[in-house]
Structures are given as C-alpha cells and as structure tokens.
Amino acid sequence: MTAMKILIVDDSITIRRIISTALKTVGYSETIEASNGKDALAKLANGNVDFIITDWNMPEMNGLDFIKEVRSNPIYSSLPILMVTTRGTEHDVIEALQAKVNSYIVKPFTPQELKEKIESILKSVPVNTP
C-alpha cells in the first residue's frame, strides 16, 4: 500500500466509493472525499493532500473552477490533479489541460487505467505535500 493521501472530488457518492475502491485495489488506501469544488478547497486547506482526483460537473463549484482555484494558489501549483469525468469532447479535454490538469480520464475507467494514470503523473510531477 502507498502512503499517499488522495482527495477524491465528485458529487456522486457512488463514484466516490467506486474510485476509493479502485484505488485500494491498486494500492492506494488513504483517501479523503469531497462532494464539490468548494468542499474540496476546505479539505485541501486542512493539509496533507498529495494528489487530487476530480470530476467536472458538480454543483456549487465545478471541477474546472476548482482546478483553476487550486492552480492560482502557489502552495498547490504543482499538486498533481487527475480529472475523471464523463465529458469527453476534444474541447473539454483542451479546456481542462489549459486549466493545468495533469491528466484526464473519461468514465468509465478500470482500476488498472486509474493506476497507470496516477503512476504516469507521479513520474512527471514529484509528490509535493503542501
């Protein structure tokens, strides 16, 4: 098991549980959850988050605004962010990349795909706990 704390941001409790289970399956057991961007910012402020997995479509603060907010803070500028969403148009992906998301997965995904994406991000961005 890897001692990396992953923040899962999704308004669907089902998806949060699915991501959490998938992460456990591939060796990441420490997770915390938030139901939207606003909630996630509060959880992030509590500290010790090493990696963020976020959805796009969420109430109150959507994933894209959340990422922009995170990236605007110098403390979190290099925090790895993986977007996991149903939005899969070319325009969506480009918009997310322009918001400085590290990688992107279109649902549905497998635990193996999740693992490969996380590992790929971690290779390029060293974990930097704020």
């Binding site: 669907s12 699915i18 649902k107 549905p108 995904f109 635990p111």
Partner: peptide, 16 residues
C-alpha cells in the same frame, strides 16, 4: 466484486 463495483459507474453516466 471489484468488477461489479466498476460497472456501477454506468449509474453516474446514466444520471448525467
């Protein structure tokens, strides 16, 4: 069991 859980992603996709 894990595969069934993963298949439940369809619920979120359908919801959207």
């Amino acid at each position: 069991c894990t595969e069934i859980m993963m298949a439940l992603q369809v619920e979120d996709i359908t919801q959207q």
